[in-house]
Design a protein around this nucleic acid. Structure first.
Length: 1146
RNA sequence: AGUCCUGUAGCUCAGUUGGUUAGAGCACUACACUGAUAAUGUAGGGGUCCGCAGUUCAAAUCUGCGCAGGACUACCA
């Protein structure tokens, strides 16, 4: 029970961070912050689960600080804010990490390593950095319950997912289809659109592109193209993926596009030919400079190739024309090699004729199906239909194909050289980027056979796998889908009720995304993830979706009865027992679920669909799965759903935000979250993205170690709005430490120093407001205004503005004005009401700041609060995070008080400016200032702050000039805000007339309160509201003005003033000496001053004053001051004397 | 290519419903103060408010068209 406020040698925020953390741990402060709110209304917050298989970065500090601020604030407001941590444990990143670690590929799973072992490795690996995450969470002061996190691989979590899937299944929202989807051969999996939309997936790459020449078959339809010529006619079509050319089965033209025939020669072989392409794109292939070059003069090998445009036609004329297969390696079954119409065909690039390979393009597939064009399909050894490329990204080897199919369809002579080739070098570990690509080899073949018109390298934007960084192929895949398109409108509607911060992300980015919503591709062909709980019969006519563990158990029992299975893996599972142990008796992961064979209604065997579900479903289902709904927590579910608040990076818009919203809409017809902050990216100081590769990533651990987490958090929150990108600069953190925390710490130190001297412990009753001096009432008024403002900001989910407001108050008002002006009240003097009021006021400010700022800077503010409270015992709580948010006391807010203090600050600053101008130091007292009074109300306002101003500027008197004398020179300015709407167009002329008014006019105006001017022969009556009159100058005085305020300073120094000035100079020198001599603030001294003609009188006159200010018991003016301890002091230029101070013993 | 965001001092950012001297901090320069002192204050320089056009008496602010940067979307041949 100390009666002294703790003092510190210096401010070490890193140490405070550690100390406070320790206290929180010892006192279980976080738990208490929940316990003390037990029974209060809840504030529902959802923590988005991070994956612990990667190290946390500095951007996680940003996102988590935001979440923490809101939750801490709501706790202060009395809400119970449960925050359950979670871990995202499934999915590709984990699998790839394990594969890399074990040195295996996807194909080895089930061969070199069992699925069981593999999944076990994933289970271990995914929690690899748990410790680091927990460490960061704790060090940065993010309060979240890490003791019982939800873990997505937990059987109970999976059970809820199954329950949800069954809801969707029964609503008919789950279906299986095949579509062309992004597929990553390197990762061995299809990619969802969310995954493909990960930042950085689309990259500029340089690929070999080819313009192929497709030889037209001459028949009735195409006859018009052969008119007047005797050579072959070709369609020109461009592709950036020549490896898809062997799979070409159609060409698409735009119905309204104009096409032209051109007579020319093949650039590679010189063979004469006619080519067809869009007229608009003609110039991209034919140089107009060569126009007129005679066809007949061309010789093979000439660089200048002549050409001659022939007839034109439109796209619809070309529809249905047949052409020869470009690379006749494989014959497709069904109709192919025909021109079709495509509405997506443009004339922006290429030739206006688009090569269609239905197996490798989503659009291609769509238009081909619509036109009845067959895709080019292989039949593999197992009889399955396959595209030309297998799942590893290579052309099928002949031995892997069905023999019958090969015999009937494959030209093995042509295909053999290419079979087994990877379509991108990146998929073949034995190849580098420099090796010849399949694209190049195909292009070369085309050149040789006069089937290429142009082959060149071309930079284009191509999607890449977000994890392997290798190219993605568009590939036909079987998949389970969720019919999100069916609830699109409802999702849009519900989205409108969500409070997005910033608004544009919700309305624009997210809203637009919803409008263009496609069905959600749920399937993943991997091993480590939530299995799809659907069992299907071999003839695919019967299926079952399982929605819970007991249901599965029952179905297995039936299967055993039927003799399809011999063992029940759920034998020991007890229905209704939700304990961890009960749910650890089995495993819902592969391969165990794959072994389960169920029995259909008609008695058929049902096998599990081998797909896993998209991990985003895992995270989007966390509102339910984290509480094992509906198997547990069913009764009070509405208290935990939906969330009132979530926050994550804007990159989650199509990820977590979407899946949360989709599942909530489909299963509960509700939003999943009501308020959301989506924060921007954390960039490096120059605005580049942080990445490990570039080495510009900031390590959060070392940063927190060095600065402590408070300045880091404060900087991140106050520097920019959270949704703007943050250019992270350590210099900014340093600045925050110095400017804000340094100032606040200094203010506390100041308070502590004197409070301890005076024995202030806040034991006295509060000094009533009316007995407190002006300046105290002023800072308290501001303080209460601040409380209001900060509360509003927090309520509006705008912590940036809250932090900035607190910072401004501390720096500008509390430190720079209040403490500076009040210093003298604290040192020396009696322990009277004024002093107690001073202590109480400053104490209250510090205490309130500690609470207001605690959500943002939880460590320092707790320390500050506890240091204050350790003596005062105003609070019984053991932490600032357990108290209630202060209520603003409106009765203390006094706007006119705030106004006059503002005037005082302005006047002081103007006078200080004037003193500087004439080089009169502040220590030299001056006799008076004069302030012209513009309206009567100013007088009491200024009277009230007179003392403050005079002592601040060291002037004896303040005089008001009410201008009856006419000494003031006035200036008149139009008030555009009132005049503008009234007079509109003639505004400029009015302003001109007002500017012309002279001193007499102004006086007349002021006396009559109105004034008539003539504009365009019309009388315009001005009132005093329409103008602003200020006094600009007082002839013969030193004058300054700012805004409406004007002040004049009397710079005459009388002998009396000069002597007082000298006395003050002495005080200054003596104080410095005391300090240099390491005297304590309270030490009494004796003082000897050597005589000097220039100072004797001043010292004698002000002996008592000097003594009282320097705590000198005796002040003696003696002939000589000699000896070692005599110090030479210069009072003014040229006036030097000696003084000696001695500490008096008690 | 589309959607959205951003563009204000050398840097990081404010800037209310449009209203006439466009602000703060950092940095720089000078000065001052000093028992808050490894602090502090004051002043100064520094602006094409990205550009152009429009609406208006009046535009950093509203509208349109551009430019630059960023994010996202995208089958783009």
């Amino acid at each position: 029970m100390s009666t002294k406020f703790p003092d510190y040698k210096n401010l070490d925020l890193s140490q405070i961070n550690k100390d406070v953390l320790k206290e929180w741990e010892e006192n279980k402060t976080f738990d208490k912050s929940l316990e003390t709110r037990e029974g209060n209304p809840s504030f529902v917050f959802y923590e988005g689960p991070p994956s612990a298989n990667g190290m946390p970065g500095i951007h996680h500090v940003m996102a988590r600080a935001l979440k923490d601020i809101v939750c801490r604030y709501k706790t202060l407001k009395g809400f119970k804010v449960d925050r359950k941590a979670g871990w995202d444990t499934h999915g590709l990143p984990v699998e790839l990490g394990v594969e890399k670690e074990l040195g295996i590929t996807k194909e080895d799973i089930g061969k070199k390593i069992t699925v069981d072992e593999y999944n076990e490795a994933c289970r271990t690996n995914v929690m690899k950095y748990t410790r680091e995450w927990e460490d960061l969470t704790s060090k940065m002061g993010y309060w979240v319950n890490m003791d019982e996190p939800y873990i997505t691989y937990d059987n109970r979590y999976i059970e809820t997912l199954w329950w949800l899937l069954k809801q969707l299944f029964e609503k008919g929202y789950l279906y299986k289809g095949y579509t062309i989807q992004p597929f990553s051969p390197a990762a061995g999996t299809g990619l969802s659109t969310h995954e493909l939309n990960q930042p950085g997936c689309y990259k500029d790459v340089k690929d070999t592109t080819a313009v192929g020449l497709f030889k037209i078959e001459k028949d009735e339809k195409s006859n018009f193209l052969f008119e007047g010529i005797d050579c072959d006619v070709y369609f020109m079509a461009w592709t950036t993926t020549p490896w898809t050319l062997p799979s070409n089965t159609a060409l698409a033209v735009g119905p309204k596009i104009n096409y032209v025939r051109v007579r020319t020669f093949n650039p590679y072989t010189g063979k004469d030919c006619v080519v067809v392409l869009a007229k608009e794109l003609f110039n991209n292939f034919f140089d107009t400079k060569l126009e007129g070059l005679e066809l007949s003069e061309y010789k093979i090998g000439d660089k200048k190739i002549p050409y001659k445009p022939l007839s034109e036609c439109v796209g619809t004329d070309l529809e249905g024309i047949r052409y020869e297969q470009l690379l006749p390696w494989v014959k497709p079954e069904g109709d192919a090699f025909r021109v079709i119409l495509g509405d997506f065909v443009t004339i922006e690039d290429g030739t206006g004729i688009v090569h269609i390979a239905p197996t490798f393009g989503a659009d291609d597939d769509r238009v081909a199906k619509a036109a009845g064009i067959s895709p080019l399909i292989f039949r593999d050894k197992e009889g399955k239909m396959q595209p030309m490329v297998d799942r590893t990204g290579k052309f099928f080897k002949i031995e892997d194909l069905d023999e019958e199919f090969v015999k009937n369809h494959v030209n093995t002579e042509l295909y053999a050289p290419y079979a087994g080739r990877y379509v991108k070098n990146a998929f073949d570990s034995s190849l580098t980027e420099k090796d010849p690509t399949l694209d190049v080899d195909i292009a070369v073949d085309l050149k040789k056979s006069s089937q290429a018109f142009k082959v060149e390298k071309h930079v284009h934007n191509y999607p890449h796998c977000w994890r392997t960084d290798k190219p993605v192929l568009y590939y036909p895949l079987d998949s389970w889908f969720i019919k999100t398109t069916k609830v699109r409108d409802r999702m849009i509607e519900l989205n409108k009720t969500i409070n997005w911060k910033p608004k544009s992300t919700g309305e624009g980015r997210f809203g637009k995304w919803l409008e263009n919503l496609q069905d959600w591709n749920l399937s993943r062909s991997r091993y480590w993830g939530t299995p799809l709980p659907i069992w299907v019969s071999e003839d695919r006519k019967e299926m079952k979706c399982i929605g819970s563990v007991p249901e599965l158990k029952g179905e297995i029992v039936k299967s055993i009865e039927k003799g399809y299975m011999s063992e029940n893996m759920l034998e020991k599972y007890v229905e209704g027992d939700n304990s961890k142990e009960n749910y650890e008796k089995f495993d819902l992961h592969r391969p165990y679920v794959d072994d389960i064979v169920l029995v259909s209604e008609s008695g058929q065997k049902l096998f599990r669909e081998l797909d896993l579900i998209d991990v985003w479903f895992d995270s989007g289902a966390m509102p339910y799965a984290q509480q094992h709904y509906p198997f547990e927590n069913k009764e009070d579910f509405d208290k935990k759903f939906p969330a009132q608040f979530i926050a994550e990076g804007v990159d989650q818009t199509r990820g977590w935000f979407f899946t949360l919203h989709a599942i909530a809409t489909m299963c509960f017809d509700s939003v999943a979250f009501e308020n959301i902050i989506s924060n921007g990216l954390v960039l490096d100081a120059t605005g580049n993205k942080m990445s490990k590769r570039l080495g510009n990533a900031v390590d959060p651990f070392s940063t927190i170690e060095k600065y402590g987490s408070d300045p880091l958090r404060w900087y991140m929150i106050t520097n920019a709005q959270p949704w703007d990108n943050l250019k992270f600069d350590l210099g900014g953190v340093e600045e925050v430490r110095r400017k804000f925390f340094g100032t606040l710490y200094n203010t506390y130190s100041f308070f502590q120093l004197y409070a301890n001297v005076d024995g202030f412990t806040y034991s006295e009753a509060d000094v009533p407001m009316e007995k407190r001096p002006e300046i105290d009432r002023w800072i308290l008024s501001l303080l209460n205004s601040l409380v209001k403002e900060v509360e509003e900001c927090y309520e509006a989910y705008e912590p940036t503005r809250a932090g900035r407001a607190i910072q401004d108050f501390v720096n500008e008002n509390l430190s720079n004005w209040y403490v500076r002006l009040c210093r003298k009240r604290y040192w020396g003097g009696e322990y009277d009401t004024d002093k107690i009021s001073a202590y109480q006021t400053l104490y209250k400010c510090l205490e309130t700041i500690s609470i207001l700022g605690s959500p943002i800077a939880p460590f320092f503010m707790d320390r500050l609060f506890l240091d204050l409270n350790s003596v005062s015992k105003n609070y019984t709580e053991s932490s600032v995070h357990l108290v209630d948010f202060p209520a603003a006391d409106e009765s203390v807010i006094d706007k006119s008080l705030e106004e006059r203090q503002d005037m005082a600050q302005k006047i002081s600053s103007m006078v200080l400016g004037l003193r500087r101008k004439v080089k009169i130091r502040v220590r030299q007292p001056l006799s008076k200032i004069m302030v012209p009074i513009l309206d009567e109300a100013m007088i009491p306002q200024l009277e009230a702050v007179k003392g403050i101003i005079l002592s601040e500027i060291n002037v004896k008197e303040m005089e008001f000039i009410t201008d009856t004398s006419g000494v003031l020179i006035k200036k008149i300015k139009p008030n555009f805000k009132t005049l503008g709407p009234k007079h509109g167009k003639i505004m400029k002329q009015i302003a001109g007339e007002i500017a012309k008014m002279n001193q007499d006019d102004i006086v007349t105006f002021e006396k009559a309160s109105e004034f008539t001017i003539v504009v365009n022969d019309e009388n315009v009556v001005l009132t005093l509201q329409d103008v602003e009159i200020i006094s600009e100058d007082i002839p013969g005085w030193l004058v300054a003005n700012e805004g409406k305020l004007t002040v004049a300073l009397d710079v005459n120094i009388t002998e009396e003033l000069r002597q007082e000035g000298i006395a003050r100079e002495f005080i200054n020198r003596i104080q410095n000496l005391r300090k240099d001599s390491d005297f304590d603030v309270t030490d009494k001294i004796s003082l000897e001053i050597a005589m000097h003609d220039a100072i004797n009188e001043a010292v004698n006159t002000h002996k008592d004053y000097i003594g009282s200010q320097t705590l000198a018991e005796s002040v003696s003016l003696i002939e000589n001051v000699n000896g070692e301890d005599a110090k030479a002091v210069e009072i003014e230029a040229g006036i030097e004397t000696y003084i000696r101070i001695k500490k008096l013993s008690e």
